[in-house]
């Protein structure tokens, strides 16, 4: 059964990947799946960290970049600017990336190494 249509304006398709994996249509050899999972987990971790920075900044009583340590200031500027360009993208990533990770785990389980893509 195909998933319900995801938001057409969103670049994410986590539900589709979960469906493909659950139905056994998406099959990936274990080495490749592990590499993809590892990359996705790293991206998720970075997205969560950046989202934390963004939230701290949004809840700061006085939003003054020049009062922040330089290491943090650069991250805040990057995070705020990225959020202005694509509002909500990080939140969406933090919700959607785990679906891709789970889909790849399921896709990996379905095939012994070397048997498929």
């Amino acid at each position: 059964m195909a998933p319900d249509c995801e938001d057409p304006s969103s670049p994410f398709a986590g539900e589709l990947f979960l469906t493909l994996a659950a139905e056994g249509r998406l099959v990936v050899d274990s080495a490749r799946a592990d590499a993809v999972i590892s990359g996705l987990e790293r991206t998720l971790s970075l997205a969560r960290a950046r989202l934390r920075v963004l939230r701290i900044w949004q809840h700061a009583p006085a939003q003054r970049v020049d009062e922040l340590p330089r290491e943090l200031a650069d991250d805040v500027v990057d995070a705020v600017f990225a959020d202005q360009l694509a509002p909500g993208r990080l939140e969406e990533a933090v919700t959607e990336l785990p679906k891709y990770i789970e889909a790849m785990r399921q896709a990996r389980r379905l095939v012994p190494p070397g048997d498929a893509a």
Partner: peptide, 13 residues
């Protein structure tokens, strides 16, 4: 999946 990760990460430096 690769492109998606780039799209999430690159704008954030």
């Amino acid at each position: 999946i690769e492109r998606l990760q780039r799209d999430v990460l690159t704008p954030n430096g």
